[in-house]
Design a protein around this nucleic acid. Structure first.
Length: 163
DNA sequence: GCCAACGTTGGC
DNA sequence: GCCAACGTTGGC
């Protein structure tokens, strides 16, 4: 069976006090591993669906302003989140074993830091985004699928051409 | 700071 | 397997 190669899109949430897009920009090669996801639905996306080359919208949650602040690309697909194995790490989880990991992560590299963040309040005004998971109240998922239409609309709002 | 939504835990 | 209690997320 032929492997489906269609590029997919995602939204990753981060509290900027913990890890912001500026932190990503300062990383070597502007690349980081995305650790600390401790929700099974989000884990499943990271382990099974997020693929090299996929597009990522970087969202600042619990922040002022709440906004999509840039894009990244996936450079390494799902592999075990080693922070779960480290006692003392804030993401330590004793039920995750090296030979049977519970939690997964991917690596992403910064592509574009928006010159002007696309604020949540702006997104809420856009008709074509009214179904976007991020904007549904009570949506706490930290790794969310984004449709190609939503991806293009957000880049358009950010004034970004190519991505 | 408030609180609704959601996920997890644990007693039964 | 049910569900109440509890903890966390995250917008407002």
């Amino acid at each position: 069976m032929a492997k489906k190669s269609t590029r997919q899109f995602w939204l990753f949430k981060s509290e900027p006090e913990a890890f912001s897009i500026d932190d990503l920009e300062r990383c070597p090669d502007q690349t980081t591993y995305w650790d600390g996801v401790r929700n099974y639905q989000a884990r499943n996306f990271l382990r099974d669906s997020v693929s090299v080359g996929d597009g990522v919208l970087f969202y600042h949650s619990n922040a002022d302003p709440l906004a999509i602040v840039g894009t990244a690309t996936v450079v390494k697909a799902g592999y075990p989140d080693h922070t779960a194995f480290e006692p003392g790490n804030s993401h330590y989880d004793p039920k995750s074993k090296r030979d049977n990991p519970t939690w997964y992560m991917v690596d992403i590299r910064l592509v574009t830091k928006f010159r002007v963040p696309v604020e949540r309040s702006k997104l809420l005004e856009v008709k074509s985004l009214e179904e976007m998971m991020l904007l549904r109240r009570g949506s706490r998922l930290s790794i969310q699928p984004v449709t190609a239409t939503e991806w293009r609309e957000v880049l358009s709002l950010a004034g970004v051409k190519e991505n």
